[in-house]
Simulated assay, not measured.
Amino acid sequence: MPAYHSTFNELEDVRIVGNTSVLPIKSKFRGPAPLADSSSIDIIDETLTLFRANCLFRSFDINGPADRLLIYLTLFLSDCLSKITASKVEPSLNDARKTLTTFSLESFALPGDATFPLNSMYAPPGNSSDADHLRQYLTQARQELASRLLDQLYPLDAEGRPAAKPSKWWTCFAKRKGFWGS
């Protein structure tokens, strides 16, 4: 059974930087991402939906530029879960929010950089303005993904209060080795 691929691979009129799509996002954070329709799913929703299934696969065939963005966001989501579960004490929602906000804003490698883990699958940006645009876009996507992940990790109870500890149905995937082999 093959891994699940992005439904955004076939979109027309999408900016491509290197060989990665710059897709619309429903975001509350500032950045260069085009705004997505609030009633439809975006790549962040798709990443959260497909994460638990895709991390079980040992390989992932790339079918288009949106799959590269899906892979990047899946790796980032996995790193977020690792950050949350790294401490011996389960973090509260506020502690997790601080951790993931800091992590999403940290400096990170882009395709073409020596420290980027998947350089063989990604083309580097063509010039420095494309690299700046991609870095800003990925920073915005990382912030939005971290924010929405917290909503999944700490679901609201019947009285509208967030859970005291992260959901075991998400944290159990923190140490899972998937198609990225980490």
Rank of each mutant, 00 (worst) to 15 (best):
P91Q: 01
P91Y: 02
S92I: 02
S92K: 06
S92P: 05
S92L: 05
L93G: 01
L93N: 07
L93F: 15
N94Y: 09
N94R: 08
A96S: 14
A96K: 02
R97K: 12
R97Y: 05
K98F: 00
K98S: 13
T99L: 12
L100K: 03
T102V: 06
T102E: 11
F103S: 10
F103G: 06
F103H: 14
E106W: 01
E106H: 04
E106Q: 12
E106I: 00
S107G: 14
F108D: 04
A109S: 15
L110S: 07
P111C: 11
P111N: 11
P111Q: 11
P111Y: 07
G112D: 08
D113T: 00
D113N: 10
A114I: 04
F116V: 08
F116W: 10
F116T: 10
F116C: 11
F116R: 11
P117D: 11
P117F: 04
P117T: 03
P117G: 09
L118W: 09
N119M: 03
N119I: 01
S120Y: 06
S120E: 13
M121F: 05
M121H: 02
M121W: 04
Y122P: 03
Y122N: 04
Y122V: 00
A123Y: 07
P125D: 03
G126N: 14
G126T: 15
N127W: 14
N127F: 12
N127A: 11
N127S: 12
S128W: 00
S128T: 01
S129L: 08
S129I: 05
D130V: 02
D130N: 11
D130R: 03
D130W: 00
A131S: 15
A131G: 11
D132V: 02
D132N: 11
D132I: 03
H133M: 07
L134S: 13
L134V: 14
L134P: 15
L134G: 14
L134I: 11
Q136W: 05
Q136D: 15
Q136A: 15
Q136V: 00
Q136T: 05
T139V: 06
A141Y: 13
A141L: 12
R142I: 03
R142K: 13
R142W: 01
